[in-house]
Amino acid sequence: MTNFIIILLSAVFINNYVLSKFLGICPFLGVSKKLDSAAGMSLAVIFVMLMATAVTFPIQKYLLEPNGLEYLQTIVFILVIASLVQLVEIVLKKYIPSLHKSLGVYLPLITTNCAVLGVTILNIDAGYNFAEAMVNALGSGLGFFLAMVMFSGVRSTMETSDIPESFKGLPITLIAASITSLSFMGFGGIIENLFGGA
């Protein structure tokens, strides 16, 4: 049990995909202008990360590894994740239109998101079993959610602040993102102290 908590917490805070690993920067900068769109995007990311891990893990373990095809990992994962997201979109549109309406615009954006591919590949690299991989995927998604929601707050404050002309728009957003990511450095070493280096 402690094992899962460690994986979850470290995925959310220490190895945060956006702020520590710098994956998924595109939606982080693109969709974080408003709180509701940031939350919608992050929920879609959590959902897709879990789905993608659940599908790619068996593919790696039972299809690629026994046949010595590990080097096809990246391309097969991209293929599978992309079609999975499309499938999910079709299913949602048919059966849960309300969810499709709120996640709909973000799902195609996530299709080729590096954070999603990163989670699935790093799960394999870390040597997790299936349950651990799912927990890690959930943690990574929650970490993405946290980063997005936090940053949308930062951006809403920037909207009303007096920014020098040359910094307006993307430059100041990048600077704010770097400072936010700097703050996450403070979480380093917290797990070792909490769980006694387990």
Binding site: N67, L72, I75, L79, S83, Q86, L87
Partner: peptide, 14 residues
């Protein structure tokens, strides 16, 4: 061949 097979399966499902 495996990639093509997987792609065809995915495409068919979609």
């Amino acid at each position: 061949i495996p990639v093509v097979i997987i792609a065809v399966i995915c495409g068919a499902i979609l």
